[in-house]
Design a protein around this nucleic acid. Structure first.
Length: 575
DNA sequence: GCCGTTTTCGGCCCGACTGTTTTCAGTCG
């Protein structure tokens, strides 16, 4: 079983935590964290890169030493240095650092003074009142640690973007009523449209700095459960939903610089600030400074301008090559929702959807689409009301009839055809021939070994009536891991065969991932952004798909459902 | 441990808030 990038990154992160607790050189610690970030976010697996004979030191923040360590982990699964460090410093200490308010220094103090090694040790010490006796800890610290250790449940789950929107919307409306407020924007990963967000970063500008009344208004919000910190320019709270919200208030003149700063990503910001340093500037949330002189910061564009770059869209700000592309004038012109001309994956009552053909058609037409494909499940997927041959042909007749009555939109005859365990398709060719095109997907046997799963999909693509591979990883965010599959191989073969890959826009799927999109684009495989709608309301999830596509650098030309219908039909004819 | 238009050593992004402090360390983002 090949070692995943995430496993390598986790090991580096754990090593960084433990070294930090040991009071190692902070820059060395940071080097491991940077490497973890690079590896975790890299679109191809380290194992594949090494197979191809790639030089890992060409990756950002990976030097000779870390390249060797990565190679060792790929080959043996082990990181000997981590094991060595774990011999002398209890591994569970890195868990304790996840508790709010406990960093390396305090975890170290707790360990050295009270021999606290685990969460249980910590709870016990807090209960018995031993903690406040340590130098640097007082009654308040002890009480906070006691409370937080008690309800600590480990890794905090990130929230789906669509759920974050539901939390943010009423909060935003409430905050807008604050006195003295000029502008308000949600920054952070929410603005970068990441598929999940860890917290909400809200930025407000006010006529004057240090507007205490705005902070009071914020912490008075009736969903606030706990105020973690509260200052003049920055406050943090937890809402009842569990969502952490950070609010920052800056003067209006700093809006652009602050927006840039709080939108991140961290890696992108650090890289931009480094570029500023080279030019003799200091960049922070208040602006761009040359010495004491403030030379930019009113708009984000002015910040980029000072480091010699064009404006970079928030979705690209991950330090995944956007700065280099910007320098070269090669930034993509990102796709927008308006570029979408149709939707190639939708269900009706005939299988497991909630609306009729006509209702779906009308809803799609009202979104301005030229076409909507009806893609009921195929016969093997009985749990989802899969259609047999007769039922499918009956539905096609209905579609033909409805198409005669519809104006401005065309329903396409399709099906979400199951890819069976052996790689064959769930309908015979003579039936598949009747489809305008097919959307093919895996719905069972998720746990095949990677090689078999990949072969299964390749075998399916051999069928000349295979057009689009739906939700290619099968993952459900926070619920189900992706199945083992060699995406690069699949994309390579899809390109050869004239097949396409879906970016499923369901907020829980968003499958392809952003990194998958980057890879598909690089390999020249066309993408269908499709909602997999099971109701008329689901059709509007298209915007999440477009968000993800933008994070994946996709342009209008990379997305097949930006084409008019006549051109799209030609794409589906395989020879 | 990484990195280099200040290039193989000597730097490494930057500011706010809290608590325990008498001027700052630790933590966080």
């Amino acid at each position: 079983m090949p070692v995943h990038n995430s496993e390598i990154a986790d090991k580096f992160d754990r090593l960084a935590d433990l070294l930090e607790i040991e009071d190692a050189n902070p820059f060395r610690v940071r080097a491991y964290r940077n490497a973890a970030r690079t590896v975790r976010g890299y679109p191809r697996s380290m194992s594949d890169l090494l197979d191809d004979g790639a030089d890992l030191t060409e990756l950002p923040d990976i030097g000779d030493d870390l390249a060797k360590k990565i190679q060792a982990m790929v080959e043996t699964g082990n990181l000997p240095l981590l094991e060595e460090v774990e011999e002398r410093t209890p591994p569970a200490l890195s868990e304790l650092m996840k508790i709010e308010g406990l960093g390396p220094k305090r975890v170290r103090a707790l360990y050295l003074e009270l021999n606290i090694k685990t969460l249980d040790d910590l709870k016990e010490a807090a209960e018995s009142g031993k903690i406040h006796e340590i130098a640097g800890f007082g009654d308040k610290s002890e009480e906070k640690i006691r409370k937080r250790a008690e309800k600590f449940i480990g890794e905090k789950k990130r929230t789906l973007l669509i759920e974050a929107e539901d939390i943010a919307r009423p909060l935003l409306e409430y905050l807008k009523k604050a006195e003295g407020l000029k502008e308000i924007v949600i920054a952070g990963s929410y603005r970068r449209r990441k598929e999940t967000v860890g917290d909400l970063d809200i930025l407000i500008t006010a006529a004057k700095a240090g507007t205490a009344s705005i902070m009071d208004h914020f912490t008075d919000y009736d969903e606030v459960e706990e105020v973690v910190s509260k200052g003049k320019t920055r406050s943090t709270v937890y809402l009842r939903s569990g969502m952490q919200v950070d609010l920052r208030v800056v003067p209006q003149i700093c809006f652009g610089a602050a927006q840039h700063y709080f939108t991140g990503s961290r890696a992108h910001n650090i890289a931009v600030r480094k570029m500023g340093v080279k030019k003799g500037y200091k960049i922070n949330e208040y602006g761009v400074f040359r010495g004491d002189e403030r030379i930019a910061g009113k708009t984000e564009k002015s910040v980029y301008d000072k480091v010699g770059l064009p404006y970079i869209e928030p979705e690209l700000r991950e330090n995944r090559g956007e700065l280099e592309a910007a320098k070269e004038g090669e930034l993509p012109k990102l796709i927008t929702l308006d570029d979408i001309r149709g939707n190639l994956h939708a269900h009706t009552k005939a299988s497991d959807g909630h609306n009729s053909l006509r209702e779906m058609a009308k809803a799609a037409a009202s979104l301005g689409y030229e076409y909507l494909a009806i893609t009921e499940h195929s016969k093997s997927l009985a749990v989802a009301g899969g259609l047999d041959k007769k039922q499918l042909q009956a539905q096609f007749k209905k579609i033909d009839k409805l198409n005669e009555q519809l104006d401005g939109i065309v329903l396409l005859k399709s099906s979400e055809v199951d890819i069976l365990a052996d790689g064959s398709l769930d309908y015979p060719d003579d039936l598949l021939k009747e489809l305008d095109f097919s959307v093919c997907a895996i719905h069972q046997k998720f746990d095949l070994p990677g090689k078999k799963q990949t072969e299964r999909i390749l075998r399916a693509m051999d069928n000349p009536y295979f057009n689009i591979l739906a939700h290619p990883s099968g993952r459900l965010i926070n619920e189900r891991d992706p199945y083992e599959v060699d995406l690069e191989k699949i994309l390579e073969e899809a390109k050869k065969r004239g097949c396409f890959v879906e970016l499923n826009a369901q907020p829980k799927r968003l499958d392809l991932t952003d990194e998958g999109c980057i890879l598909a684009k690089k390999m020249g495989v066309g993408i269908s952004i499709a909602t997999d709608a099971h109701s008329t309301a689901d059709l509007e999830h298209m915007r999440f798909g477009v968000d993800q596509a933008r994070r994946g650098w996709l342009e209008k030309k990379d997305v097949i459902n930006c084409l008019p219908l006549n051109k799209l039909r030609k794409l589906f004819k395989r020879n």
